[in-house]
């Protein structure tokens, strides 16, 4: 692990984050957008762990905040999917551009 410079890991997580943003921007399916958001949170977690590993902050801090992020991601997924199910029950669609009742 010592062999990999910090910047490589940061660039890797940057790419992962960018892929997540791309997915969140272009997906039509709401579940697809949620999946992309999970990817973005994951990239942020990798960054937290890398910083806590490489720099002389308290080594536990990064991991603990990663745990918090994972918990938040779980709640986001649960609430988001509940909204998707409620939407599907009412409108029979999960595509964002078909839910345009308030758009003009």
């Amino acid at each position: 692990m010592i062999g990999i410079p910090l910047s490589h890991i940061l660039i890797f997580s940057l790419l992962l984050f960018a892929i997540g943003v791309y997915g969140a921007l272009v997906r039509r399916n709401i579940i697809g957008i949620l999946i992309s958001i999970e990817l973005m949170l994951n990239a942020a977690n990798i960054n937290l762990i890398a910083f806590s590993k490489y720099t002389s902050l308290s080594p536990a801090t990064g991991q603990i905040f990663a745990i918090f992020v994972i918990a938040i991601a779980a709640t986001a997924a649960a609430v988001g999917l509940a909204i998707v199910l409620a939407l599907y029950r009412v409108r029979k669609t999960v595509y964002t551009d078909e839910v345009n009742l308030l758009k003009w």
């Binding site: 579940i31 994972i70 991601a73 997924a77 999917l81 998707v84 199910l85 599907y88 999960v94």
Partner: peptide
């Protein structure tokens, strides 16, 4: 924790929602 919560719970939830919709 990552495997337990993300793979075991979040992905399962997502697949559940996909199956329902």
């Amino acid at each position: 924790i990552q495997i337990l919560l993300y793979v075991g719970a979040v992905v399962t939830l997502i697949i559940f929602a996909i199956m329902l919709t």
